[in-house]
Write a protein that binds this DNA or RNA. Structure first.
Lengths: 204, 204
DNA sequence: TATTCATGATACAGATCTGTAGCGTCGTCA
DNA sequence: TGACGACGCTACAGATCTGTATCATGAATA
């Protein structure tokens, strides 16, 4: 099974699927999934509607694929940063907050796609919502690992505090721009970490 | 004067409008505004569709009224708490975070309605989005006032930190339940306030 | 008693949305 | 060369949604 050129039809299939998903993802993120119809996705991606439904069973499946791809690229970025700071958790946290802050500051930033989905779909059994829930759980898990590596008195509490300020920054969006999201997040995290180091703040 | 029947036309008008808005608000919050059709609102509120469109020009107007009411009751609660702690900003902040945390912990909590609207409507000129933007600006304004009264070295920074952890808590929702949102928020706020008091953390 | 007016009930117009059917085209491979 | 399979195109079915038109009802008021 060749994976690149001589495969012929297989490559075309992948191209079409990728183009649909890329177009849909951009529209879904910018406008919201309920605001974007499949006809628009079809028109913008330049494929036939038949092709869209050949690659994705339903629109919900396409939305799920969109969130899965977001989730995947998110952790890819995370892992890349983590690999650059092995054995230095304090510096890694700083670097993670750096790109997260930069992401918020980007033009066209419109909130965390995982959180946005929860606002659009109340049904907990929606496939896309499950992706979002898993994404946030994974974030808390990784933050706990990081906090533990930082050798704090209260790693769990600190991890939750990090999760809160991250979600807050992702939700606040533009309101943070003037302040510079990344340095603000880093400074706040350092303040909380300093407090979490001392046993004095260990009471609840 | 019975309040249901003989009160006259004016009261009936108010009743119908209030019933529509109350029904719509509950559905909008629980399901999302795009997921709820006017036919459902009409059926649940027991009024005629004609009446709905007599009191609200469009569905968007109804959504705007929903957010305006949310905004109003939010600040009503805030003012009530503020009035109970005049001259004691530290205690007031504690009390504000208390009811905010309690709100997050309520069953059926589904995020901040103002933030949720931003996820559903990307158009900044949407009337409901303007309400949401104004709401968050007002929150930051009040937090700045509060932080200033607390006599900190960096009131603006601290106010922004508060805004972030509040938005984070409102967005994280259920993830915070196990920890007890209110005490967690209060403890985090105290940690940040302590740091903001000292001149040492005044750099940046 | 006659009028007014908010409401209820029903039907419907017009737009939009998801998903499918049918058919033609073209490149790949046996 | 002929079968195969992915794709494009058009049309459409069926559902749903917003908003309106039409008419009846019933209570308050002059």
């Amino acid at each position: 099974m060749p994976k690149q050129q001589s495969a012929g039809a297989t490559d075309t299939v992948t191209d079409v699927r990728a183009r649909i998903l890329a177009t849909a993802s951009a529209l879904f993120y910018r406008e919201g999934t309920r605001a974007v119809g499949v006809d628009l996705i079809v028109a913008r991606s330049g494929v036939a509607k038949t092709s869209l439904y050949r690659h994705f069973k339903t629109k919900d499946d396409l939305i799920e694929a969109f969130l899965l791809e977001e989730d995947q690229s998110f952790w890819q970025q995370w892992d890349m940063v983590a690999a650059a700071h092995v054995g230095a958790p304090d510096q890694e946290l700083d670097a993670q907050l750096q790109w997260l802050g930069d992401r918020v500051a980007r033009v066209g930033y419109r909130g965390c796609p995982q959180i946005n989905i929860a606002a659009e779909y109340s049904d907990e059994s929606h496939p896309a919502r499950k992706v979002a829930v898993a994404h946030k759980a994974e974030l808390r898990r990784r933050l706990t690992v990081l906090a533990t590596a930082m050798n704090l008195a209260q790693p769990t509490r600190f991890a939750l505090q990090l999760a809160i300020i991250i979600d807050g920054a992702l939700s606040s969006g533009r309101a943070l721009h003037a302040e510079g999201p990344a340095p603000f997040l880093q400074q706040t995290a350092r303040t909380l970490a300093t407090a979490a180091r001392s046993a004095a703040s260990a009471k609840t």
